[in-house]
C-alpha cells in the first residue's frame, strides 16, 4: 500500500506544481500586460538571453552544418547524388536541428541562468521586497524574461539554420568540391518557405515558450536555499530538454507526418 500512497502523493504534487506554473504564466503574460512601460525591461532581458547566447548558437550552428555536409557527402557521393547535399543540409537544419538544438542550447545557456537568477532573487528576499513595495514580481521580474525568451529563441533558431547552411557550403562546396550552383539551386527547388521555414519558426516559438516558462517557474518556485537553487537549475535543464524532445515529436507528426 505504501507505493500506492507515494504514487498518489507525487501525482498530487505534480498537479499542484502544474497549477502553480500556470498561475505564474497567466500572472506574468496574460494579466494586464504593460507593453510600453516594460519594453525597456524586455530589451534588457533580450540582451541577457538573446545576445549573450549568440556566440554559442553561431559556433554550434557552423559546426553542425559542417559536420552534416561531411557526413552527407560521404553517403551521397556513393550514389552520385552529391547535388542533393544542399537540400539535405537545409531541410534537416530548418525542420529539426535548428529549432531543437537551439532550444537545448538555450535551456543550458539562458534557461539555467534565468532559474538561478530568479531563485537567488527569491533567496535574497528581492521578490518579497518587491511585493512589499506593492510591485507585482510576476509582472516586473517574470514577464519581461518570459517575453524576451519567447522573442529571442526563434530568432536564434533562424540564425542557427542560416549559419549552418553556410557551414555546409563551406565544407561541401569550398572543401569537397560540390558544385556551388547545384548546392543552392537544388536547395531552392526543394525548400519551401511555408512548409519548411515557417514550420521551423513555429516549432521554435513553441519550444521558446516551454523552455522559458519552465526556467522562470523553476526559479520562482525554488526552495530559497543554495541547495534548492542548484536543484531547480538542474531540473530546468532536464525538464526543458525532455519537453523539447517530446514536443518535437508531436509537432513534427502534426506538421510533416500526416500527408
Amino acid at each position: 500500500m505504501d507505493w500506492l500512497a507515494r504514487l498518489g502523493a507525487s501525482t498530487l504534487e505534480s498537479l499542484s506544481a502544474l497549477g502553480r506554473a500556470t498561475q505564474v504564466l497567466f500572472g506574468a503574460v496574460i494579466a494586464k500586460p504593460q507593453p510600453v512601460k516594460h519594453f525597456p525591461l524586455v530589451v534588457k532581458q533580450m540582451y541577457v538571453v538573446g545576445v549573450q547566447s549568440l556566440l554559442i548558437i553561431i559556433v554550434s550552428g557552423l559546426f553542425i552544418g559542417m559536420v552534416m555536409a561531411l557526413q552527407g557527402y560521404t553517403i551521397l557521393v556513393d550514389y552520385g547524388a552529391e547535388g542533393s547535399l544542399g537540400p539535405m543540409v537545409a531541410l534537416s537544419l530548418l525542420r529539426e536541428l535548428g529549432p531543437v538544438v537551439t532550444a537545448l542550447l538555450f535551456a543550458g545557456r539562458a534557461g539555467s541562468a534565468l532559474t538561478a537568477e530568479i531563485g537567488l532573487m527569491k533567496a535574497t528576499e528581492q521578490l518579497s521586497s518587491l511585493e512589499m513595495m506593492a510591485i507585482d514580481p510576476l509582472r516586473r521580474i517574470i514577464a519581461p524574461r518570459l517575453w524576451a525568451g519567447i522573442i529571442s529563441m526563434p530568432m536564434l533558431a533562424l540564425i542557427f539554420s542560416a549559419v549552418g547552411i553556410l557551414g555546409g557550403h563551406l565544407v561541401g562546396v569550398d572543401w569537397l568540391g560540390v558544385d556551388a550552383g547545384s548546392y543552392w539551386s537544388i536547395m531552392q527547388a526543394t525548400v519551401e518557405w511555408n512548409e519548411d521555414v515557417l514550420n521551423g519558426v513555429i516549432k521554435s516559438a513553441v519550444f521558446a515558450l516551454v523552455v522559458t516558462w519552465i526556467s522562470v517557474f523553476k526559479g520562482y518556485d525554488a526552495v530559497p536555499t543554495s541547495e534548492g537553487i542548484s536543484k531547480a537549475t538542474t531540473e530546468t535543464v532536464v525538464y526543458s530538454s525532455l519537453a523539447v524532445l517530446g514536443l518535437d515529436f508531436v509537432l513534427t507528426a502534426l506538421m510533416f507526418g500526416i500527408n
Binding site: 535574497t124 528581492q126 518579497s128
Partner: peptide, 19 residues
C-alpha cells in the same frame, strides 16, 4: 492590498537590494 502596502515598507534582513 497593493494600495495599502505603499504606506508601509519593510527592511529585510538581507537588505534585499536589487543586485
Amino acid at each position: 492590498l497593493f494600495k495599502v502596502r505603499r504606506q508601509m515598507s519593510m527592511l529585510f534582513q538581507s537588505g534585499a537590494l536589487f543586485t
